[in-house]
């Protein structure tokens, strides 16, 4: 069997790789202190020494974008992980046991999916208050039904296979069957969904922060930067463009990666 490495995969992996590199570097080094203000150097256009220019407080935009990667990836990773964990366990229960359990869980998932993702997250944040932790919880809840569907349909399909029936006949515990025998078969599609979900989480986090409900100032976040920049759209266009383009690239990267992974891992092709 020939492996197909598509262009999407290459570009996606390269973009995601760049962001991972930026993320790691930002923990040790940023060109300037992230929150340091310089009144004499506000609204400087991109150039030297400020690679992407400075903002309304004279803070270095590039440093803040680097630091913002931490926020974006922290929220993205955790919300996808939590969403995945919740989705897989509920999907596995429903898919394996069927019946009433399945019906209730499916209905729950459908109900949550009926709300637009960001709107639902907004509602949760409005009730529990803003902040990084609540943002993660909100995004996890909106993310889990997707994972639940994939897991459930996979389980329904695979539990009919003879190797599962064989395991059941010799008395292997249901938990072990689920984890050892069925779940590994679903990993490729879950990985694709995770990569896709990550892009969605980045966008949702930026959206919430833009509305002032995510990360609190002065800590940088791409969405917050967009919010702060919009008042200076004509005076300092680079201030809005920089976080905007970075956000587009990150979302594009993860979407391409997920497309590429699907082509690579899909057993049907």
């Amino acid at each position: 069997m020939k492996t197909k490495v598509s262009l999407s995969l290459v570009i996606g992996a390269a973009l995601v790789g760049c962001f991972l590199l930026m993320l790691v570097v930002s923990f040790f080094y940023t060109p300037f202190a992230v929150n340091e203000m310089r009144s004499a150097e506000r609204f400087l256009p991109p150039g030297r020494p400020y690679l992407l220019g400075t903002d309304n407080f004279g803070r270095d935009i590039f440093s803040r974008i680097m630091k913002g990667t931490q926020t974006a990836f922290f929220v993205g990773t955790l919300s996808v992980l939590f969403g995945m964990a919740l989705g897989i366990s509920l999907g596995a229960l429903g898919g394996y046991f069927g019946g009433w359990t399945d019906r209730i869980l499916t209905q729950l998932g459908t109900t949550i999916q009926a709300f637009p993702g960001v709107l639902f997250a907004l509602m949760i944040v409005a009730v529990w208050g803003p902040g990084t932790f609540n943002t993660i919880v909100a995004l996890s809840i909106t993310a889990f039904p997707g994972f639940m569907r994939i897991t459930r349909s996979g389980f329904i399909q695979i539990k009919e296979y003879s190797f599962v029936e064989a395991a059941q006949t010799i008395g292997v515990s249901p938990l072990k069957i689920m984890l050892r025998h069925i779940l590994p078969n679903l990993l490729p599609s879950l990985l694709v969904a995770a990569s896709n979900g990550f892009a969605g989480a980045l966008l949702a986090e930026a959206g919430l922060s833009y509305l002032g409900l995510g990360v609190q100032p002065p800590e940088p976040s791409w969405g917050r930067m967009l919010n702060e920049a919009q008042g200076y759209l004509l005076r300092a266009p680079w201030y809005s463009l920089a976080p905007g383009i970075v956000l587009v690239l990150a979302v594009l990267g993860f979407n391409l990666l997920s497309d590429g992974l699907r082509d690579l891992l899909d057993p049907k092709q």
Binding site: N35, E36, M37, N56, F57, G212, P217, P218, G231
Partner: peptide
């Protein structure tokens, strides 16, 4: 949070 001016002021005061 609805007063951008106070939010800006806060960021400067923090520094």
């Amino acid at each position: 949070s609805n007063y951008a001016f106070h939010v800006d002021t806060a960021q400067i005061i923090v520094e």
